[in-house]
């Protein structure tokens, strides 16, 4: 495992453009998030994103998104988008919710390539957007295999 990491590091140094790309946020991240937000105001409340502060295995990181919502026909969450800001491709998943759920909470396990910030965007039925973010340190990246 340590050997693979060292090899990855050396290759990163040789392949400079790739190294630079990895030091920044994932390409397409901003466009993908703006595609969801679509110019609407973003609230930073009423949503919780839970991740471990430190993940031993970046290949299996538990994630919970919970949105405060009565989940009624008149007032509910329609979608939750999850982005890993420093993965080679930032899209983790999009969850489509309905009032039948009764509770706007989803748990899954995600793959993180390196230390990074994860962002969740919730879209409500009236078009409001809620955003939460969490930082996770990753001991072994989820892309090394």
């Amino acid at each position: 495992m340590a050997g693979a990491r060292r090899r990855g590091l050396l290759l990163g140094l040789v392949a400079l453009p790739a190294g630079i790309a990895w030091a920044q946020e994932a390409p397409g991240l901003e466009a993908a998030m703006q595609g969801v937000i679509a110019g609407r105001p973003v609230e930073e409340a009423g949503i919780a994103l839970r991740l471990p502060a430190q993940a031993e295995n970046g290949g299996q990181v538990p994630l919970t998104v919970a949105v405060e919502s009565p989940m009624t026909a008149a007032d509910h969450v329609v979608a939750i988008h999850v982005f890993a800001t420093r993965n080679p491709t930032p899209g983790v998943a999009v969850f489509h919710l309905s009032p039948a759920l009764g509770r706007a909470e989803v748990q899954t396990r995600i793959r993180l390539a390196e230390d990074q910030r994860v962002v969740a965007l919730a879209v409500l039925n009236d078009g409001r957007i809620r955003r939460a973010a969490a930082e996770t340190r990753v001991a072994t990246g989820g892309c090394l295999g």
């Binding site: 290949g59 299996q60 990181v61 989940m71 999850v82 982005f83 890993a84 993965n87 080679p88 491709t89 930032p90 899209g91 983790v92 998943a93 999009v94 969850f95 489509h96 039948a100 759920l101 009764g102 509770r103 909470e105 989803v106 748990q107 899954t108 396990r109 995600i110 793959r111 993180l112 989820g142």
Partner: peptide
């Protein structure tokens, strides 16, 4: 759920239903 590259192997999901 639309699953992207960031979804871990052996996809696991928890959700609620009334």
């Amino acid at each position: 759920a639309d699953l992207g590259n960031g979804t871990a192997a052996n996809p696991y999901h928890v959700f609620f239903l009334r």
